[in-house]
Amino acid sequence: MGINRRDFLKGAAGSGLLLAADASPALAFGPRTPKELPPDAVGILFDSTLCIGCNACVFRCKQANPHMALRPEFNVPIGGLKIHDTPIGLSENTLTVIKLYKHDGGHSFIKHQCMHCIDPACVSACPVTAFTKDPKTGIVKFCKRVCIGCRYCQLACPFVAIGFKWDEPFPEMVRCQLCDHLIPLGKYAACCSYCPTGAALYGRVADLRKEASRRLDLEYGEPYRFPVNHIESGRKSFRPAAKYYPNIYGDTEGGGLQVMVLAGVSPLRLGLPDLPDVSNAAVSEGVFKTIYKWFAAPIVLLGALVYLAYRNTEEYRKPKDEDD
């Protein structure tokens, strides 16, 4: 080794100084500023106390997304409609699924799907911007032509809501896109437009949040007119309110979600992850944007390596002796 202790310490101190100079103290390894909800963002309010487990959403979702959601073997037309399978979880063939939570005192249904985070981890993790967040509706969209198939998004998603078409030669990532292909046709998410009880309710996130907090304020058994399908559809279902667990899952969890859940039990018992109020994307981006600010860390690292290499090769750069 051609480096002595003194030089090594000098180099180390130098790079430390450089790093310290680059990272402003307020942002040092902290989360970056969380992203804001677009004012006209759309989403879904899922009320577990209203869900009856009819699976209309699962079936209609597969019908509305035939290009991605039906395997050929299930593509059997019966009475002009296609039959559905009984999925056990989200996958490349299932964009939404109704799961059953059972315990001694009763049971509850929960709709699993892409939660359309306000600050989505998949968008942050994607190295090629195949995932984008629509600036107007807030829908997280996927572009097949850009995707390189690294599946970082699958690993990043805290809800395990992204599927990958393993059995196709040219695969793609598959997840709920809130039926954005129906929006130009004047329609909205198929799961909500066919939910008979209003358990899955579509609308502007701001309106849905107000609706959710109104429901939490209801007394147990108090009659209430629950909006059905779309919060502005005018359809109402009149029934007594159930007992709510006092939390809107998705109000703050994971930096806020556009798909929110109300339930009679803690949403964590319904298979939803316990997320901090700061999104994973903000934390990880905070760390790596600190390290990579002005590309400082790589430059410092490269500089140190070059220096080391230079020191180590000093002997070889000396003019050669006559003896050899």
Partner: peptide
């Protein structure tokens, strides 16, 4: 109950074809 108010399904034991939270 009002004639067109939605019924309330009584699943005393929900059918086993539903996916469970923890498979």
């Amino acid at each position: 109950l009002p004639l067109h108010q939605l019924g309330d399904p009584l699943y005393h034991f929900p059918p086993s074809h539903f996916a469970r939270i923890d498979e």
